[in-house]
Amino acid sequence: MKSESNGKINIAIDGPAGAGKSTIARMVASALSYIYVDTGAMYRAVTWYMIQHGIEPDEEQEVLQTAQNLVIQLIPGVDGQKVLVNEENVTTLIRSLAVNAKVSRYAQIEGLRTQLVSLQRQMALRKGVVMDGRDIGTTVLPDAEVKIFMTATVQERARRRYMELKDSVSITLEQLEHDIAARDHLDEQREISPLRQADDAIWMDTTEMNTLEVTEAIVSLAQRSGWREESK
């Protein structure tokens, strides 16, 4: 249901690793003057912290107890969103290959997802939020007015990730294709909130689309769903 207080709606963008969800969600939020919530960054922040403190995913009780004491902040800025954990800026640190390799395993912990989903829902109560992840339309914001399932071929997603990482990380395109395919399998097969398209979500294959085309398509959907120009 649309909020009568501000005329805005919520937008959920789901999809597999490397689909470009975060980039598009940021651009859509900027175009609509909405708030962008990067749920993936929240799981990455927890994963980074656990790795730093030697807490493995199979130590579930230790993970949950430690996570309860974490303060995760998503702070928008001119240069993009900053991610803070207990006031430490971890924006770049959470994008490491070490975090990539383990984030899906931590994300399978039911209690951790419960903690973070509760926080994410609170962020969306006042509407005007663009949220991306893997279970936003199915679990976190099932009542979002616009739901997108954004994907691309494994090869294209690996190519995009390679272009992002090639100057800072030593990894081959072939290795990235393997890692992304493995991540897809983990996300789709996990018992808790698996990656899947919501029944009322719009499938969007971005393999042959640029970021501007994808952004404009989603903004157009938002406008047709009741977003009003005067609510900006």
Score class of each variant (00 low, 15 high):
T206H: 08
I180E: 04
E208D: 02
M209Q: 01
S22M: 08
W203C: 02
K102D: 07
R134H: 03
A45W: 14
N89W: 11
I202Q: 02
M163C: 02
E216T: 10
G226S: 08
W227F: 03
G18P: 07
S220W: 01
R113G: 03
E229Q: 11
T151S: 03
V85C: 01
Q65I: 10
E188F: 03
S104D: 02
E4Y: 01
L32A: 11
Y162G: 09
T139F: 10
D132V: 04
A152W: 11
R183H: 11
I109A: 00
D58K: 12
A152Q: 12
E174N: 11
G133A: 09
E208R: 06
D135I: 13
H178S: 12
E87F: 11
G77F: 09
M209E: 01
K166V: 12
W48I: 00
L125C: 06
E87Q: 15
D184N: 12
E164S: 12
V219I: 15
A198P: 04
L221A: 15
D179W: 02
L112D: 00
M163S: 01
Q68F: 00
S96V: 08
L64N: 02
R224Y: 05
E177L: 03
T139W: 07
S231N: 09
D38A: 15
A17R: 02
S3V: 14
S193W: 06
Q223C: 07
D143W: 14
H185V: 05
D135Y: 07
A144P: 06
I171D: 00
D184E: 12
Q65R: 15
S231I: 13
A201S: 14
A217W: 13
A182H: 08
A201E: 08
S30E: 15
L141A: 08
I75Q: 00
R105K: 13
S5W: 05
T138Y: 04
A25K: 10
A182D: 09
E88Q: 13
A31P: 00
L32F: 10
G40M: 03
M204P: 03
M27D: 13
A182R: 08
L119H: 10
A29P: 10
R126E: 15
L70E: 10
A45K: 14
E164G: 09
R190L: 15
S30W: 14
E177W: 04
D167S: 09
I9A: 01
P142F: 13
